[in-house]
Design a protein around this nucleic acid. Structure first.
Lengths: 308, 308
DNA sequence: CTGTTAGCGCCTTCAA
DNA sequence: TTGAAGGCGCTAACAG
């Protein structure tokens, strides 16, 4: 039935015809048991410092959709799991549970140590997130530093003088965006950049922006850690009588579907999520086959719309 | 190990301790093979007339997130699959493939016949979508008709006189929203309601709204089939110099996370997606256990913000 | 209350 | 080239 093994083609055809006639199908569970595999890949979402982050986050859900497609193309099922890393053993627990043949982790969160530890004795894992030469594990991600720089250059070019960064600081992806942003600014502007720490949810970022604008702050250029954050900042600004982009220019990150249809349409740094998902699956299957892999970084692209 | 069967508690504890000591774990694949089950539930997304609809649609992704949580609480894995119903056999193919113990279908799309056919000989299936007494299958969904009426009443109360409906017509959920909306209007207004067919994607609905406003149409009240559509309509309106809510009031449907932080914050008919997901899983497990189930409809709630 | 045993459906090896 | 048999790790039935 599988097409493997030594068998006369006509015998094979005969068996197949018989199978079709009787509605016989291979039992995948038994096949997997015998083959010592599970046929499933886990997609793990560690919610380290941001346990409120919801699967409905547009970036995450887009990623999961593309992952589902890429995995099913290779015959794998997708086992979706959100993990609250209460203790340090969650990943190793998951590995030894043997429920899956491989693991894709979305975002390092603050779980760098856990990931490195697992990577020393478990091959079949890849991670979406920031590249760091010290990591033991293979990552796929955007060049967040370069993306941050693009945002800085664009705001500079528009003539912005007083800048603000709205972001969640802990995860390395977001750190790199911030660092890149700061690096893209001339010294005299850099030291005056206001760093506004915000939660990852739209609720949280909106509240933080509200508080910030209510205190009277009026930067003329804002770089936000994500499009969701940028949209919340825009909403809060508008509610405080700040006009975008005339009074304040806003640049987001991700280029989620809605960014284009926000009001005003969002200028943002685009990540190619679909390519990222395919690459993750590619590298994972290569690792599962015993091959070696290197981390990859995608170059982001600035999409200029109306908000900046 | 499973805690079932007749066994002295101390013997059981001894075995468990031994297992922990040696790192022994039950092999789920073998367990499932022996038990004749798979331990997985499929979540199927039929993309009938709207194959462009993407998993990144905020409603869908929120639903999937809650489903993932509800299923993992019951020990099931979630097998995610988008299906393009090219031919009529996709569901039956899936059923006989035996890859899962039960099926949750999200949205009837235009696949009513297929669902009914499958339901006659397959119990372990529930469907998110519109209730119809003629359906052979169990549905869970919002009372879309009532939701549409709420939108109508609210716009009336604001004094709107010329109304428009932006929606995708084919799926029964959206039909019911429209019918409820029309039913909630007095006769003289109802006959003048403009029906604007739009695709389900933000791109498509934005383009349709653009075209509509460019032609000079200026309704003072709009009900959109979803929040995503409503946000696109708002964006297009703003670009055409229409001020919301002063020139035109807009009511959406769903209450996705971003609705509250859109500009202006969206007035919308809220569906409780989390309760819906839990109910789907509840009913499904009850059906898998051989029990009988009835369809349920959740009452939606109008959330008044600034867009109307 | 505990220990033994027969298979769940498949794939691989080995013998014919 | 084909057929037969063993065993993947588990659970349920049965015997002790």
């Amino acid at each position: 039935m599988t097409g493997k093994g030594t068998l006369n083609q006509q015998t094979r055809d005969r068996i197949r015809a018989l199978a079709a006639e009787h509605g016989f199908r291979l039992n995948v569970a038994a096949q997997n048991l015998r083959l010592g595999r599970t046929g499933a890949i886990a997609v793990l979402l560690p919610l380290g410092h941001e346990r409120a982050q919801h699967l409905s986050d547009p970036f995450l859900s887009t990623m999961i959709g593309h992952l589902a497609d890429a995995l099913s193309d290779k015959g794998y099922d997708l086992l979706l799991s959100r993990v609250l890393p209460e203790e340090d053993h969650w990943l190793e627990e998951f590995v030894v549970s043997g429920r899956v043949d491989g693991i894709i982790v979305i975002g390092q969160s603050d779980q760098n140590d856990v990931l490195n530890r697992a990577a020393t004795h478990y091959r079949s894992m890849v991670v979406w997130g920031a590249y760091d030469p010290d990591n033991m594990y293979t990552t796929v991600g955007s060049d967040n530093f370069a993306g941050g720089m693009m945002a800085a250059r664009h705001l500079l070019q528009r003539g912005c003088k007083t800048m603000a960064w709205f972001g969640h600081g802990d995860a390395p992806e977001f750190q790199a965006r911030k660092t890149g942003f700061l690096a893209g600014l001339p010294d005299e502007l850099r030291k005056n950049v206001e760093i506004i720490p915000i939660p990852i949810t739209p609720e949280g970022s909106h509240a933080a922006a509200q508080a910030y604008f209510t205190l009277g702050h009026r930067p003329d250029g804002v770089f936000a850690a994500s499009d969701v954050a940028a949209m919340s900042v825009c909403a809060a600004a508008t509610q405080n009588g700040i006009s975008i982009p005339d009074d304040m220019a806003v640049v987001g990150f991700d280029d989620i579907l809605l960014a284009r249809y926000a009001s005003p349409p969002l200028t943002t740094v685009r990540q190619d999520i679909e390519s990222g998902a395919r690459m993750l699956v590619d590298l994972l299957t290569r690792r599962m086959a015993g091959g070696d892999t290197q981390s990859v970084q995608f170059a982001p692209r600035l999409i200029v719309r109306e908000s900046a």
